[in-house]
């Protein structure tokens, strides 16, 4: 059994394809959609959790790639806008995983996306709004 959180990015011409249907039907996977951002004729994004047999999962990933979809890990979903960050440090006591950490003696903040669990607590706790999510941006712009 595997359980993976991934993000699928669809090129515009694949947005209207029944991709999820195939994942379930052909590869016997369980699909738990965390967030969807799909607009006709635009690039779409789908954050989801896939679980199923290891082999099926591997085959599904291969198939998705063949279809022209891009697969990303969930850790790439939170963006630290270093140009907007003032290095105050307010986020570092809010972030539960130390993905946002305070460096001493430099007294600066750094972001380790691999430690990020996309809890999104920092998005609003940052007064300078230097933390962003790809998904929210795609919706608002």
């Amino acid at each position: 059994m595997v359980k993976q959180k991934i993000v699928l990015r669809f090129p515009p011409h694949l947005v209207e394809q029944p991709t999820i249907y195939h994942l379930i039907k052909d590869f016997d996977l369980m699909v738990n959609i965390l967030r969807a951002d799909i607009n006709p004729k635009k690039e779409g994004r789908l954050m989801m959790e896939l679980s199923g047999e290891e082999l099926n999962y591997q085959r599904a990933v291969e198939w998705l790639k063949e279809q022209g979809l891009r697969i990303m890990g969930l850790e790439q979903q939170i963006i630290w806008r270093s140009d907007r960050c003032t290095h105050c440090g307010a986020c570092t006591v809010i972030c539960p995983t130390e993905a946002l950490a305070f460096n001493r003696p430099e007294m600066t903040v750094s972001f380790d996306e691999y430690k990020c669990v996309v809890c999104e607590l920092c998005l609003k706790a940052c007064p300078a709004r230097a933390m962003e999510t790809l998904v929210e941006n795609a919706n608002s712009r």
């Binding site: 290095h87 105050c88 440090g89 307010a90 305070f102």
Partner: peptide, 12 residues
């Protein structure tokens, strides 16, 4: 745990 709202890096 402590955190600052004022930026020490900025002050520097």
């Amino acid at each position: 745990p402590t955190a600052s709202l004022s930026s020490y890096a900025g002050a520097r």
